[in-house]
Design a protein around this nucleic acid. Structure first.
Lengths: 327, 327
DNA sequence: AAAAGTTATTGAAACGTTTCCAATATGGTG
DNA sequence: CACCATATTGGAAACGTTTCAATAACTTTT
């Protein structure tokens, strides 16, 4: 039989309230009593029952991370830092893979609601703003809802887009294309395109755009098949891909068409996933400040959970350029 | 005010017990009553309070995944499947990154104990067998404790080792080396080496071993520096690396020494992480059945949680060879 | 129509905390 | 010593479920 607070109280010869106060470090306990209680705790090997505590408090020290798939290297890095930061603050992480599917996102939101989690960090592709319970703090990564007390953390996508163009030009490109997989839901990610275009215009560089929607049955093969069908696309000497993965796949395909990187085409990705150090050639990329994004999200979320109101609606964190071998 | 089961009971004009039975689909409720209750539930927008339920039951439908780092691509793939399988069974996943640090593993075990999780799936480097509470079901991946009702799921490492040698030989290698990062704690992973050696002996192939301990302040740079110091190591024409990551790094270094892969040296990794499709050259590898390992772990764990006793102590799942461009 | 059997329902108790108010102990002051 | 202020403590109530023994409502059998 696992001992309860009652057993401790009895053994220590005090009331349950006192034991509770000792456990929670309330200042109003005499040192002597505290000692007695601690001894009883040790003797009985008593461990506070966190489940009962959650119940009484009507909330748990659990934060949910809702994202498309932990399998993706960018998300798994993000999850790593989020978990680490949460742990420092005494919180736990619950992982929810939505697969990017709207129905699953809603299903999870519902479940998290029932489970009275302390907060949610979400990377969602759904207009979930109506479904997020108002009393569960929510931090959205890369999507800005602009209402309902949902705050947003993101990398500085716009600046990243500009940077990508600058670097391509610096590397000698004069005709560039933006490669993207879009989602029907608006996201800050689109600013990557905008920054890229704006900078191209300012610099007087010819700039093409190629995008396909990735919401359902998206296929890499089809994407690149379509892309290379357009002869214009074979004449570019600079490529900025939406994500590192897409950039890596582009390089893969390009190679098969005897397009050499970086001799014929310079390539820059976005994300800065760690593994691209092992891609050959090593990818040049706009590196998202993943660690800072993760930790910031947690810090903001916990501040919200504490009842604070945040000063900004959106927090954009600067990106940096990381040179590889593709520029 | 969020409605409780009591409010529903009142509105429906029944007892709380009846409402509870409706929610939990007990068969002993008249259809008519059930309908009344369901209407009340809908009208009040009642959602069962999972926290209270956990409390009453003294356990939650939460399973913890304790691993060194979700950031590692192999673990993030594993986590993906584990979460998916758990979700199908109505369970949730709590993620714990131990960093491979013994103290943190113990700290998490303690915490999981307090939180009365339904079970734990662990990839640990610690002799945690004395610290796992006997009444929390535990599935250990890649480590076999052989006691205390801790069951083990692993890939067939021994067979994988043999396979690696066979494939290197098939590709033309005649003098091979096994590259490994070891840990002080025994793990099934070591069978990769054993299988490799045994097969080499049987085939009469010369076989070197190079290993370093990775427990603390391990550095890739040092590892390869030491490795290449030994001139013998420059004469091999076949390399089997412990993990894909290690193989990719080997290829990286080899290139810098003008060792060509696969012309001069054939390389095979172990794991089959997805991203190695983007490595160039694409890595040949012994693919772990990650999905099956993940799903099997969950299935076994939940059977244990249900009170079943499992037939085997260890479940070895077959591996397959996946040919890339390095053999 | 009563008895017996079956099925459906009720409502109190229990799970282990925290919190709050009342009660008591302690210490200081006039 | 009486009184008051303050520090410390005790213990009941409450959190929202599930469960179980008791009871009620039907059915069938006699």
């Amino acid at each position: 039989m696992v001992p309860s607070i009652k057993d401790v109280a009895e053994l220590a010869g005090v009331g349950v309230g006192t034991v509770s106060r000792v456990i929670n470090n309330h200042p109003t306990v005499k040192a002597e009593t505290r000692k007695k209680v601690n001894e009883a705790i040790k003797q009985l090997n008593y461990i506070p029952n966190e489940v009962a505590r959650n119940f009484k408090m009507q909330k748990s020290k659990m934060v949910a991370l809702l994202l498309p798939s932990i399998w993706h290297p960018f998300f798994s890095e993000l999850a790593y830092y989020i978990e680490d930061e949460l742990d420092r603050e005494g919180y736990k992480l619950m992982l929810c893979n939505s697969g990017g599917r709207p129905d699953k996102e809603l299903y999870y939101l519902d479940m998290l609601n029932q489970n009275k989690v302390a907060g949610i960090i979400g990377i969602t592709y759904n207009d979930i703003d109506d479904d997020v319970s108002t009393d569960i703090p929510f931090i959205s990564i890369d999507r800005h809802f602009g209402n309902k007390n949902i705050h947003c953390v993101t990398s500085d996508n716009y600046q990243g887009g500009r940077m990508a163009l600058q670097e391509l030009v610096k590397a000698g490109a004069s005709k560039v294309v933006y490669l993207g997989i879009t989602s029907s839901a608006y996201s800050e990610v689109e600013l990557r395109r905008q920054g890229f275009i704006d900078e191209a215009k300012e610099q007087g560089i010819e700039c093409l755009i190629y995008e396909e929607n990735g919401d359902e049955d998206f296929s890499d093969d089809r994407f690149f098949e379509n892309f290379f069908k357009n002869k214009d696309h074979l004449n570019v000497d600079g490529v900025f891909a939406n994500t590192d993965m897409l950039a890596a796949k582009y390089i893969d395909r390009a190679k098969k068409l005897d397009v050499r990187v970086p001799e014929d085409v310079k390539v820059i990705g976005y994300d800065g996933i760690q593994d691209n150090q092992l891609f050959h050639p090593i990818l040049s990329t706009i590196r998202q400040p993943v660690e800072e994004m993760g930790r910031t999200s947690v810090k903001l979320l916990l501040r919200k959970a504490q009842g604070e109101t945040l000063e900004n609606e959106i927090y954009r964190i600067p990106v940096v350029y990381r040179e590889g071998e593709t520029t």
